[in-house]
């Protein structure tokens, strides 16, 4: 499938921002709120990127600036190397907004046709593509039904179809699985995986950290409008450490091991958390010498949720 990616070869980055800032000023009081504060991000083409942050961190404002719905106070944003303020730069972008309000007078097919036309697609191509997408997203029987009758989950799927209509090279999805049941979520994830395989860059803004962790390769955490943490999910969640779980550990040995590793007792087992493999191996030798039974030895990782909470608390 041609996603039009070849047409946008001017940059290796799907999204690039440079000190992007948005300051909202109250006209009467003069009070300023820095919703986004000098955010510089470079998102490689073809990657899956998650933007995280607590409520009011500036995520949606950042997305709106990318898509020119909101004007930056300073800084610059580029989409595939093109100035994000230009309408032509938005041609390779598909967008699903959070809290969308699709006009209820549309049928599913009618809505896809309208947004497809705005993206510059011809009538025949729109007809073919909308049929294909309605089927792909499980809305085949609903194409001729007014969307006022759609459930929240169906609207999300239709919204995703709308974003995919013109085969964009960059998909910007703001809470794409909001209101979707677990099966629907899985289906959406499969669709997104398929797009990722085709080389589509996916920019995801979601409150569901598990979803971001399983789907995205890179993340950035925004807090108070600034990037608090950024990196590959694998690196951020890989806390260097090893956990040794053993049974029948004498008190003296526990005291000795506690000096180098924090310990906790769970279900009759003692768990020691070591920061290096060497320490963990030495502990195993000691435990075996004392006739203790080793239940497990495993490298430990953090969940993205733990990373997120740690980051937010550290920056608070």
């Amino acid at each position: 499938m041609d996603n039009g990616i070849n047409s946008y070869m001017t940059s290796d980055h799907a999204i690039e921002t440079e000190d992007l800032t948005k300051v909202f000023r109250n006209r009467w009081t003069g009070r300023e709120i820095r919703a986004v504060d000098r955010v510089s991000l470079q998102i490689q083409r073809g990657t899956t990127f998650g933007l995280l942050g607590p409520n009011g961190a500036g995520k949606t404002t950042f997305i709106k600036m990318l898509l020119s719905a909101t004007h930056p106070s300073s800084g610059a944003a580029r989409i595939f190397g093109g100035d994000a303020r230009l309408a032509s730069s938005r041609k390779p972008v598909g967008y699903l907004p959070e809290n969308h309000r699709f006009p209820t007078y549309f049928t599913g097919a009618g809505m896809l046709d309208f947004y497809g036309a705005l993206s510059g697609m011809g009538a025949a191509e729109r007809r073919r593509r909308s049929t294909e997408l309605l089927e792909r997203l499980g809305l085949k029987e609903w194409g001729t039904v007014r969307i006022g009758k759609y459930s929240k989950g169906m609207l999300q799927r239709l919204g995703l179809a709308q974003a995919m209509m013109h085969k964009p090279a960059l998909l910007v999805l703001d809470e794409p699985t909001d209101g979707v049941d677990p099966v629907g979520r899985l289906e959406i994830r499969e669709v997104l995986r398929e797009l990722e395989r085709q080389g589509v860059t996916i920019f995801l803004n979601s409150h569901l950290l598990v979803e971001v962790e399983t789907f995205c390769r890179e993340v950035a955490i925004l807090q108070h409008g600034k990037v608090a943490l950024q990196g590959a999910v694998r690196d951020l969640t890989a806390a260097p450490g090893y956990q040794v779980t053993a049974a029948g550990v004498p008190d003296e040995l526990r005291r000795q091991l506690r000096a180098s590793a924090p310990e906790r007792v769970r279900d009759g087992f003692v768990q020691f958390q070591f920061t290096s493999r060497e320490e963990a191996n030495r502990a195993v030798d000691l435990l075996r010498c004392h006739g203790c039974e080793i239940e497990s030895l495993a490298p430990t990782t953090s969940t993205l949720e733990e990373v997120f909470v740690r980051t937010i608390e550290r920056k608070r």
Partner: peptide, 14 residues
């Protein structure tokens, strides 16, 4: 309306 205008503005139209 919020939720509608952003989508319109995200399209390659001025």
């Amino acid at each position: 309306e919020p939720g509608r205008v952003e989508l319109l503005l995200s399209k390659p139209v001025t």
